[in-house]
Computed example of a mutant assay.
Amino acid sequence: MIQTGVFISVTTVTCFFIFVIFIISVIYKYIWHIKYHIYMWRYRPRQLLDIAEKHFVYDVFVAYCVEDSDWVLDSLLPIMEKDENIKLCIHERDFQGGKMIVDNIVQHMENSRKVLVVVSNDFARSKWCQFEMSLAQKLVIDMSIESIVVVLLEDIATVNMSKSLVALLKTTTYIAWNDEEEGGIEFWERLKKSVKREID
Protein backbone atom coordinates (compact mmCIF):
# COMPACT_ATOMS: atom_id res chain seq x y z
CA MET A 1 0.00 0.00 0.00
CA ILE A 2 2.82 2.38 0.92
CA GLN A 3 4.64 1.62 -2.33
CA THR A 4 1.44 2.18 -4.31
CA GLY A 5 0.90 5.51 -2.57
CA VAL A 6 4.49 6.57 -3.26
CA PHE A 7 4.15 5.50 -6.89
CA ILE A 8 0.94 7.52 -7.30
CA SER A 9 2.54 10.56 -5.60
CA VAL A 10 5.66 10.39 -7.77
CA THR A 11 3.60 9.90 -10.92
CA THR A 12 1.34 12.81 -10.01
CA VAL A 13 4.26 15.13 -9.31
CA THR A 14 6.05 14.03 -12.49
CA CYS A 15 2.94 14.61 -14.60
CA PHE A 16 2.46 18.01 -12.97
CA PHE A 17 6.02 19.06 -13.80
CA ILE A 18 5.70 17.77 -17.38
CA PHE A 19 2.49 19.76 -17.73
CA VAL A 20 4.13 22.91 -16.32
CA ILE A 21 7.12 22.52 -18.69
CA PHE A 22 4.72 22.04 -21.62
CA ILE A 23 2.76 25.19 -20.70
CA ILE A 24 5.97 27.21 -20.29
CA SER A 25 7.21 25.97 -23.69
CA VAL A 26 3.96 26.97 -25.41
CA ILE A 27 3.99 30.39 -23.74
CA TYR A 28 7.64 30.93 -24.73
CA LYS A 29 6.95 29.92 -28.34
CA TYR A 30 3.88 32.13 -28.70
CA ILE A 31 4.82 34.88 -26.24
CA TRP A 32 4.63 37.65 -28.83
CA HIS A 33 1.27 36.46 -30.16
CA ILE A 34 -0.02 36.34 -26.57
CA LYS A 35 1.37 39.80 -25.77
CA TYR A 36 -0.14 41.21 -28.94
CA HIS A 37 -3.63 39.84 -28.25
CA ILE A 38 -3.53 40.89 -24.59
CA TYR A 39 -2.51 44.36 -25.67
CA MET A 40 -5.21 44.53 -28.33
CA TRP A 41 -7.76 43.44 -25.73
CA ARG A 42 -6.49 46.08 -23.33
CA TYR A 43 -6.64 48.74 -26.02
CA ARG A 44 -9.87 47.80 -27.74
CA PRO A 45 -10.84 50.22 -30.51
CA ARG A 46 -12.03 53.39 -28.88
CA GLN A 47 -14.53 55.79 -30.33
CA LEU A 48 -12.25 57.45 -32.87
CA LEU A 49 -12.64 60.73 -34.63
CA ASP A 50 -12.76 60.77 -38.39
CA ILE A 51 -9.19 60.97 -39.68
CA ALA A 52 -9.92 64.35 -41.22
CA GLU A 53 -10.88 65.69 -37.77
CA LYS A 54 -7.99 64.20 -35.82
CA HIS A 55 -5.03 66.25 -34.68
CA PHE A 56 -1.87 64.29 -35.36
CA VAL A 57 1.35 65.12 -33.55
CA TYR A 58 3.47 63.48 -36.25
CA ASP A 59 3.10 63.06 -39.99
CA VAL A 60 4.83 59.69 -40.06
CA PHE A 61 5.71 57.04 -37.46
CA VAL A 62 8.86 55.24 -38.63
CA ALA A 63 8.97 51.53 -37.73
CA TYR A 64 12.52 50.24 -38.09
CA CYS A 65 15.09 48.08 -36.33
CA VAL A 66 18.15 49.45 -34.55
CA GLU A 67 20.43 47.86 -37.16
CA ASP A 68 18.94 50.24 -39.75
CA SER A 69 19.31 53.34 -37.56
CA ASP A 70 22.10 54.78 -39.71
CA TRP A 71 19.92 54.79 -42.82
CA VAL A 72 16.97 56.28 -40.92
CA LEU A 73 18.96 58.97 -39.09
CA ASP A 74 21.48 59.86 -41.80
CA SER A 75 19.39 59.50 -44.97
CA LEU A 76 15.65 59.48 -44.22
CA LEU A 77 15.49 62.04 -41.41
CA PRO A 78 17.34 64.95 -43.08
CA ILE A 79 15.48 64.61 -46.37
CA MET A 80 12.01 64.27 -44.86
CA GLU A 81 12.26 66.78 -42.00
CA LYS A 82 14.74 69.38 -43.18
CA ASP A 83 13.95 69.37 -46.89
CA GLU A 84 10.22 68.54 -46.87
CA ASN A 85 9.12 69.65 -43.37
CA ILE A 86 7.53 66.23 -42.79
CA LYS A 87 7.56 65.50 -39.05
CA LEU A 88 8.75 61.99 -38.28
CA CYS A 89 8.35 59.98 -35.09
CA ILE A 90 11.70 58.28 -34.42
CA HIS A 91 11.78 56.01 -31.38
CA GLU A 92 15.38 56.87 -30.49
CA ARG A 93 14.47 60.54 -30.28
CA ASP A 94 10.75 60.78 -29.51
CA PHE A 95 9.83 57.92 -27.16
CA GLN A 96 9.27 58.97 -23.56
CA GLY A 97 11.88 57.67 -21.11
CA GLY A 98 10.69 55.54 -18.20
CA LYS A 99 7.57 54.42 -20.07
CA MET A 100 6.84 50.87 -21.19
CA ILE A 101 8.03 50.34 -24.76
CA VAL A 102 4.69 48.93 -25.86
CA ASP A 103 2.86 51.98 -24.48
CA ASN A 104 5.27 54.29 -26.30
CA ILE A 105 4.68 52.42 -29.56
CA VAL A 106 0.89 52.57 -29.36
CA GLN A 107 0.69 56.18 -28.19
CA HIS A 108 3.07 57.52 -30.82
CA MET A 109 1.68 55.40 -33.65
CA GLU A 110 -1.87 56.56 -32.90
CA ASN A 111 -0.57 60.15 -32.91
CA SER A 112 0.91 59.73 -36.40
CA ARG A 113 -0.96 60.21 -39.65
CA LYS A 114 0.88 57.39 -41.43
CA VAL A 115 3.29 54.60 -40.60
CA LEU A 116 6.47 54.09 -42.60
CA VAL A 117 7.75 50.53 -42.28
CA VAL A 118 11.44 50.17 -43.13
CA VAL A 119 11.82 46.49 -43.99
CA SER A 120 15.11 44.61 -43.88
CA ASN A 121 16.18 41.14 -42.81
CA ASP A 122 17.00 42.52 -39.37
CA PHE A 123 13.52 44.07 -39.22
CA ALA A 124 11.95 40.74 -40.21
CA ARG A 125 13.80 38.96 -37.39
CA SER A 126 12.85 41.51 -34.73
CA LYS A 127 9.85 40.66 -32.55
CA TRP A 128 9.35 44.33 -31.63
CA CYS A 129 9.28 45.28 -35.31
CA GLN A 130 6.76 42.52 -36.01
CA PHE A 131 4.61 43.93 -33.21
CA GLU A 132 4.81 47.43 -34.71
CA MET A 133 3.91 46.11 -38.14
CA SER A 134 0.90 44.16 -36.83
CA LEU A 135 -0.29 47.16 -34.83
CA ALA A 136 0.02 49.43 -37.88
CA GLN A 137 -2.07 47.01 -39.94
CA LYS A 138 -4.74 47.00 -37.22
CA LEU A 139 -4.82 50.81 -37.01
CA VAL A 140 -5.29 51.05 -40.77
CA ILE A 141 -8.23 48.64 -40.56
CA ASP A 142 -9.68 50.68 -37.67
CA MET A 143 -9.20 53.79 -39.82
CA SER A 144 -7.28 55.55 -37.07
CA ILE A 145 -4.32 56.22 -39.35
CA GLU A 146 -4.32 56.91 -43.09
CA SER A 147 -2.03 54.22 -44.46
CA ILE A 148 1.14 52.17 -44.26
CA VAL A 149 4.07 53.04 -46.52
CA VAL A 150 6.66 50.32 -47.02
CA VAL A 151 10.33 50.83 -47.86
CA LEU A 152 12.20 47.64 -48.75
CA LEU A 153 15.89 48.13 -47.96
CA GLU A 154 16.95 44.72 -49.25
CA ASP A 155 15.62 41.39 -50.47
CA ILE A 156 14.18 39.41 -47.57
CA ALA A 157 15.34 35.83 -47.10
CA THR A 158 12.54 33.27 -47.15
CA VAL A 159 13.50 32.04 -43.69
CA ASN A 160 12.79 35.52 -42.28
CA MET A 161 9.38 35.92 -43.89
CA SER A 162 6.54 35.84 -41.35
CA LYS A 163 2.92 35.49 -42.46
CA SER A 164 2.25 39.12 -41.55
CA LEU A 165 5.21 40.34 -43.57
CA VAL A 166 4.25 38.23 -46.57
CA ALA A 167 0.72 39.66 -46.39
CA LEU A 168 2.04 43.22 -46.09
CA LEU A 169 4.36 42.90 -49.09
CA LYS A 170 1.66 41.24 -51.18
CA THR A 171 -1.02 43.83 -50.41
CA THR A 172 1.07 47.02 -50.27
CA THR A 173 3.05 48.56 -53.12
CA TYR A 174 6.46 48.93 -51.57
CA ILE A 175 9.27 51.29 -52.55
CA ALA A 176 12.57 49.49 -53.02
CA TRP A 177 15.76 51.22 -51.92
CA ASN A 178 18.67 50.98 -54.32
CA ASP A 179 21.87 52.48 -52.94
CA GLU A 180 23.50 52.13 -56.35
CA GLU A 181 20.93 54.37 -58.00
CA GLU A 182 22.48 57.74 -58.81
CA GLY A 183 21.39 60.14 -56.08
CA GLY A 184 18.29 58.04 -55.38
CA ILE A 185 16.16 60.79 -56.97
CA GLU A 186 13.35 58.51 -58.13
CA PHE A 187 13.25 56.68 -54.80
CA TRP A 188 13.02 59.88 -52.73
CA GLU A 189 10.39 61.42 -55.00
CA ARG A 190 8.19 58.33 -54.70
CA LEU A 191 8.67 58.25 -50.94
CA LYS A 192 7.88 61.94 -50.48
CA LYS A 193 4.71 61.57 -52.53
CA SER A 194 3.66 58.50 -50.51
CA VAL A 195 4.10 60.01 -47.05
CA LYS A 196 2.48 63.37 -47.75
CA ARG A 197 -0.98 64.00 -46.43
CA GLU A 198 -3.84 62.32 -48.32
CA ILE A 199 -6.71 64.20 -46.72
CA ASP A 200 -6.74 68.00 -46.91
Rank of each mutant, 00 (worst) to 15 (best):
T14C: 15
W32Y: 15
V57I: 08
K163C: 05
A52Y: 07
H33F: 11
D50I: 07
I23N: 09
I148L: 07
H91A: 01
I34E: 01
R190N: 15
Q96G: 00
F22S: 12
S162F: 04
V115R: 03
A176Q: 15
I18S: 12
M40H: 07
E189Y: 12
K138Y: 07
V6N: 11
E180Y: 13
T4Y: 12
S147W: 06
T14W: 13
H37G: 00
T172M: 02
I90D: 02
V195K: 01
V119T: 05
H55A: 08
V106L: 15
P78Q: 04
E180H: 14
M143V: 12
I101C: 07
L48S: 11
S144Q: 13
N85E: 11
E181Q: 11
H91L: 03
E180L: 13
R125N: 07
K170M: 09
M109H: 06
F61P: 04
H37I: 12
N111I: 00
N85A: 08
W128C: 05
F131V: 05
T158D: 14
K54V: 00
A157R: 13
Y174P: 02
I38Q: 10
D70L: 06
N104F: 04
D70F: 08
D142T: 03
K82G: 01
E198L: 15
N121Y: 02
Y36S: 02
E110D: 03
V117K: 04
P45D: 00
Q137L: 12
V13E: 07
W41I: 10
M40S: 10
I105L: 04
L169R: 06
V6G: 03
V195Y: 01
R44S: 13
I145T: 07
V6S: 09
M80I: 01
E182Y: 13
K192W: 00
D122S: 09
E53D: 14
F22C: 12
I8P: 02
M40K: 10
D200F: 14
I141A: 15
E67C: 01
M1D: 14
I105F: 06
V66G: 03
W32M: 08
Y174G: 04
W32K: 05
L76R: 00
T11R: 09
Y30T: 07
C15R: 08
I199T: 09
F131C: 06
S134K: 15
G5Y: 14
V13G: 06
T158A: 12
D142S: 08
D200I: 12
W128M: 00
Q47L: 14
D179L: 08
F123Q: 04
D155R: 08
P45C: 04
